[in-house]
Nucleic acid binder design. Structure first.
Lengths: 335, 335
DNA sequence: TTGTATGCGTTATCAG
DNA sequence: CTGATAACGCATACAA
């Protein structure tokens, strides 16, 4: 910018004013303006954001701390975040919260994130208390996405999916088909998933299907995590006729395990997932699931992140939508 | 830092020296050092990276431009990149190169990336010539991952998978099982994928299986992209007995389409993919595919990105590994 | 309408 | 051994 000022024969401050479209209060002669603009263009001038932020300007950086980027669901969420952020001129820098990371790493992630204008948490990070503590003592706004809508407040704005509504839709679909022995498979973690389990229990009680938790199994959220659990369930004297999987990944795992163990889907066992990841449409058979309102959740999150900080600590919730595909059917006739 | 200098009653430059472990040439009295360190600790001092980089220090930021974050394969690659980068103290900022983005957006991505110490390209970006041009006129090192190992040089270091070796392994496996009518389904894009198609053609010629490209179909790299192509192929007078899919995503699409159209896998049709995404182990049936040496490729990429710039423009290549699962079997008997 | 001067947080240089 | 000062690139209050 100094160079361009010299070339144009004006002061550097003038250049700054012109290039930043300074308030109309300060009028610059059109002649000078044009000349400077032309030279800047020709010299390929690039503003240096760091110098700007040194002066107190926002860094236009959004920190994203993701529970697991490998999870296709979060990968999609990140893409959406990146998109929405860019729409506001922001870029996304990745922090990590890998479960395997020691606490020092979590700390580092935050330190590096400190120069962001805001931090977006994706997925339930309550397993990293150290990180959350750090975040609380952080001056930038923090917003938590998919942390679950119930339970004690985290201290920052939260926007989640309406898990109860989703579970109602899924179980309503299954009971509507005639199912009564409906199993639940989900990871044993806090937050969003736990809420789905709670909603499942509540629904059954209210629908007068007293299972007493016999059909609940905790499995890791991986594509090969549900095999053993499914075997156990199908070996019961009264095996379930349907499985509600807390995530599509688990649903995929169940479908695969069912195939391996010769359990016909959906003839013998119906399966419902949660998330509607891209693969859900391409499983064999394709998966009935709940479509996550990703765009709305991310949009709201970005608004909280870069908008004015609200006085209260809002908790937003959006409803998922049931997508009926080929993995659900009426239960087999009692034999 | 000014505060801590005042509190300690020393000059701010002294603090800087101490906190940065300045060269031993300059010795600071242990007493002062300890005192300053203690105060810094207690005041929770955080260095401000932007101010540092203003002075010419590296930003410790790695720009990642990825073709499609939603692609589970790239999601895994990004995670690995993030991991390896952090091992060297770097963070990753996301650029986007969505196919739908207009050129201005691609430009923006680069501009924003300019303050990174290096830029890592993931996947073939040759469809964004504007972006590549920008990158060439960029001062920071650029390294391209998964851009393919053949064809004209991009002008920056490239590290890719050995597509020919992978294709040989896959087709060798299929021909070893007795297949001769092997179809190829892949996206019609340049780079890595095109190389696989070329290697497929070459292999068949050398194996004296003259198909003349009758079994080649170009399909989008999506989970629902292969349906029509598969129908066409199976409707041929001599339908293929095996499909080599250029990516696991396409393979998943083929498996699903086969199921929908009552084509038995692998009894009637064997399928091989490429990448070994996590889902490949959980398809129905599980997918025979080529495991991508992600860690080695990313490690090499990071080395090029943050290491000394080599005088030549290296092109590294790592071999994938065939993983035989349940989607391949001998072809059906000719009826 | 434009130029000068200052400061943001650091580090490097030079003087003390 | 340590303090003062300049410089990095930019924006702005103030002077001309």
């Amino acid at each position: 910018m100094k160079d361009i000022a010299e070339t144009a024969g004006v002061a550097q401050s003038t250049v700054s004013r012109i290039l930043n479209d300074a308030p109309v209060l300060i009028r610059v002669s059109d002649e000078t303006r044009e000349r400077v603009r032309a030279i800047a263009e020709q010299m390929g001038y690039q503003p240096h954001p760091f110098a700007r932020s040194l002066r107190g300007a926002p860094t236009m950086l959004l920190g994203a701390v993701v529970r697991d980027i490998t999870d296709p669901f979060f990968a999609g969420a990140i893409e959406m975040l990146s998109l929405k952020a860019k729409a506001h001129g922001y870029s996304v820098v990745l922090g990590h919260a890998l479960a395997t990371a020691d606490e020092a790493m979590a700390l580092t992630a935050v330190l590096e994130a400190r120069q962001c204008d805001a931090i977006v948490l994706l997925g339930d990070l309550r397993e990293e208390p150290r990180l959350l503590d750090d975040l609380h003592s952080c001056h930038v706004p923090v917003v938590a996405l998919w942390h679950g809508s119930e339970g004690p407040s985290l201290g920052f704005p939260t926007v989640s999916v309406d898990n109860r509504s989703g579970v109602r839709a899924a179980l309503g679909h299954l009971t509507g088909l005639g199912h009564r022995r409906i199993a639940f498979l989900g990871p044993d973690v806090l937050g969003d998933i736990r809420e789905r389990e709670g909603a499942y229990r509540d629904y059954l009680v209210r629908a007068r299907i007293p299972l007493g938790g016999r059909y609940i199994r905790h499995v890791p959220n991986t594509v090969d995590g549900a095999g053993d659990a499914l075997c156990e369930l199908m070996a019961l004297p009264e095996p379930p006729t349907a499985v509600f999987a807390a995530t599509d990944i688990i649903a995929v795992s169940v479908i695969h395990a069912a195939f391996v163990h010769d359990v016909a889907v959906p003839a013998q066992l119906s399966i419902v997932g949660f998330d509607d990841i891209p693969f859900a449409a391409a499983t064999v058979p394709s998966l009935t699931t709940l479509k996550m309102p990703v765009e709305r959740i991310v949009t709201a999150g970005v608004r909280f992140a870069i908008g004015r900080v609200p006085d209260s600590i809002p908790r937003l919730v959006y409803k998922p939508k049931l997508i009926v595909r080929a993995s659900t059917a009426p239960p087999p006739h009692e034999g």
